[in-house]
Simulated assay, not measured.
Amino acid sequence: MQVGINLLCLSGFIEEQHLGQIRRLKELGYDGVEVPVLRGGTDHYAWLGRELDKIGMRRTSTSVIPSSQASPVSSDPEVRAAGRKHLDWAMDCAIALGVESLGGPFHAPIGHFTGSGPTEDELRYGAEAHNAMAERANANGIFLSLEHLNRFETYFLNTMEQARAYVDRVDHPAFRIMYDTFHANIEEQNQPRAIATLGDGLGILHISENDRGIPGRGHINFAEVFAAVRKTGFDGWVTLEAFGAGLPELAAATRVWRPLFPDFETLFAESISFMRRGWAEAAP
């Protein structure tokens, strides 16, 4: 397994001022970082990729659908085309950055609801867009890790039963699912059973506590999560996702209104120790 950390705990846009903290992550033993790709252009991400190479950090990325006017699952052909264009931009940036995987909820706009679950047409539009995206990813040595979200953030993809069916619908070897323990804690009755349902469709494991703070301090049973994941044969990215209240652009999107960890050093050090120990103890 490789241990990573989602850099949204630092910022929604990674710049030179964040490189010192990334060097500290390297010192602590993180194998790589998950870079938010929410804005900017390919030149910026090419620069960041070079800086991460100097530090010796591998990388994945995470992207979202930013607006209901650029949704790849919309019934409106123009909106759908804008959504496909946005996915192309996210892929351009990921390629420039030199990622191993492009992940995140790049299916439907976060916080946008239609009053029901996904329609057959929406699932078809999404699968067409994601199959084309996976084909391009595969040609560039990248795999996709589409993230499910809880029902309060999206209507499109909530459970592992839905995710497994969607993987089969997209039907591409470069298309997988980012399993997030925070969202699953809300939607699944039993996380080990959910993980088994997803099976070989798992692309990245997001370790996120029930309060989005430091893993191991909340009530999620990570021992059974690690055991269930290892039982599938997965040996890829195990990535910490924790959020703070210091970034207004993220606080509003993630509903984080209070500090969830005392400081970055505590978050970084305690989390990697917890993840490596939990993974080792879950060895079959």
Rank of each mutant, 00 (worst) to 15 (best):
N131W: 10
D31S: 12
K26G: 04
R212C: 04
V167F: 04
L144D: 01
Y166L: 12
I22T: 01
E241S: 06
H107K: 09
G103L: 01
R212S: 10
P262F: 03
A245H: 15
V33Q: 00
G246C: 05
Q162A: 14
E153M: 13
V99E: 00
K85M: 12
L198I: 10
R276E: 04
L205Q: 08
G216A: 13
L247V: 03
A283L: 12
D168H: 14
S74C: 05
P72I: 07
V3N: 03
F175D: 05
T154N: 10
A242V: 03
A90M: 15
R58A: 13
R80G: 07
G49W: 00
F13S: 06
E153H: 12
L97W: 00
A228F: 07
P36K: 15
E122S: 15
K54P: 00
N221K: 03
H183T: 11
S208K: 09
T181I: 04
A194R: 09
G218R: 04
D263L: 05
S273G: 14
M160V: 02
P36I: 08
D171G: 07
V37S: 07
R277M: 13
G103F: 06
P173I: 08
V33W: 01
T154Y: 07
G117F: 11
A134P: 10
I204S: 05
Y155K: 03
D171K: 15
L97A: 00
P262Y: 01
G56S: 14
N138V: 04
A283W: 10
A108I: 03
D88Y: 09
F113R: 11
L260I: 10
V225Q: 09
F226T: 04
L28V: 08
H18I: 11
A252G: 06
I186K: 15
R176C: 02
L48M: 05
L250A: 05
L8S: 07
S61W: 00
N150K: 10
L87W: 02
H86N: 13
E153T: 06
E120W: 05
T119N: 13
E120G: 07
T254P: 07
V35T: 01
I14M: 02
E188N: 09
R151K: 14
V170H: 09
D121L: 11
L97P: 00
I272F: 06
H112V: 14
A108K: 12
L8Y: 13
E78Q: 15
A253S: 04
Y155S: 07
Q2W: 11
T159G: 05
K231Q: 14
E241W: 09
T154L: 11
I204P: 02
V3Y: 12
S116T: 06
T239F: 02
S75A: 15
L25T: 09
M275K: 01
A174E: 00
T62D: 00
R59G: 01
A132L: 13
A108Q: 12
P77A: 02
E16G: 04
R80S: 03
G216S: 13
Y179A: 01
S71L: 08
L250H: 06
F264C: 06
I65W: 08
D53A: 12
K231Y: 08
Q191T: 11
S67Q: 15
A283M: 10
M133R: 01
R39K: 14
K85L: 15
N6K: 00
F156Y: 14
F156N: 00
F113C: 02
R136Y: 02
R276M: 03
E224Y: 11
G203N: 07
F152W: 10
R212V: 12
G29P: 13
Q162E: 15
Y30R: 03
N210L: 06
H86E: 12
E187Y: 08
D235A: 13
